[in-house]
């Protein structure tokens, strides 16, 4: 079952001589539970791709379907609500809400939907992330690795169709990076979460199912199969 369908995606910035084609006719699909990585040099267009797929940025051309729904055929409000229910984000610089504690940060997308969080589910996520002891702490009282784990919890809480991770280990040391990657892999395996991660760290792609590369706005599939580790 295809969760993500990107068709002929184009994104251009500027006009005239300042015109930059960040994405050129990019197409690919992701299946349920697939953990894919997009690699590329900085400035290659990989962040633009992630922002478009996450409905944060509007493409110049092409279509993006998430679970069969065309993102950019929706109105702004509808798209926002769709995003919070179906797309989880993990950023390089965490972007936690400083005034909310660990538990509140994790359940934040549910609170935005005015939903009561399932206590069992929250406990499970806190346990998986190893944050049970820290649930009452504010982000400012956590280490970088812990903050990124909170961000992963926040991305998982709504059981979204798709998780987008933008250089999730970019601000972390090796030990924390490994832990974060293990958590993402676990999420993909245990919860059948579809994950699209961008990175420029070649070491990270060993734990993903599929690797794509962006160079000068052109995407090429480097292969890999669902649930089959790349050697």
């Amino acid at each position: 079952m295809e969760i993500v369908e990107v068709q002929d995606l184009c994104k251009t910035y500027g006009t005239g001589e300042a015109k930059v084609e960040a994405l050129k006719h990019v197409s690919f699909t992701l299946k349920k539970g697939e953990f894919a990585a997009v690699i590329g040099e900085s400035g290659s267009g990989k962040s633009t791709l992630l922002n478009c797929v996450g409905a944060l940025d509007e493409p110049t051309g092409g279509r993006i379907l998430i679970d069969g729904q065309n993102l950019f055929a929706m109105g702004e409000e509808e798209r926002t609500i769709f995003r919070r229910r179906n797309i989880g984000f993990i950023f390089q610089s965490f972007h936690l809400i400083p005034e909310l504690n660990v538990e509140q940060n994790i359940i934040f997308p549910l609170l935005l939907d005015h939903k009561k969080p399932d206590v069992g589910q929250v406990e499970e996520i806190l346990a998986v992330l190893g944050l049970q002891e820290r649930r009452g702490h504010l982000p400012g009282q956590l280490s970088g690795g812990q903050q990124q784990r909170v961000a992963i919890g926040r991305a998982l809480i709504t059981r979204p169709k798709l998780i987008l991770a933008d250089e999730p280990t970019g601000n972390l040391d090796r030990k924390n990076s490994r832990e974060v990657m293990e958590l993402l892999t676990k999420a993909s395996r245990q919860y059948q979460q579809t994950i699209l991660m961008i990175t420029h760290n070649p070491n990270l792609i060993t734990s993903v199912d599929r690797v794509m590369q962006v160079a000068d706005g052109i995407l090429s599939d480097l292969g890999g199969n669902v649930n089959e580790k790349l050697s």
């Binding site: 944060l56 702004e76 409000e77 926002t80 995003r83 919070r84 984000f89 950023f91 934040f108 935005l112």
Partner: peptide
């Protein structure tokens, strides 16, 4: 960041 996570305007 909140907008990215899905808070509406």
């Amino acid at each position: 960041a909140m907008r990215a996570i899905g808070i509406s305007i």
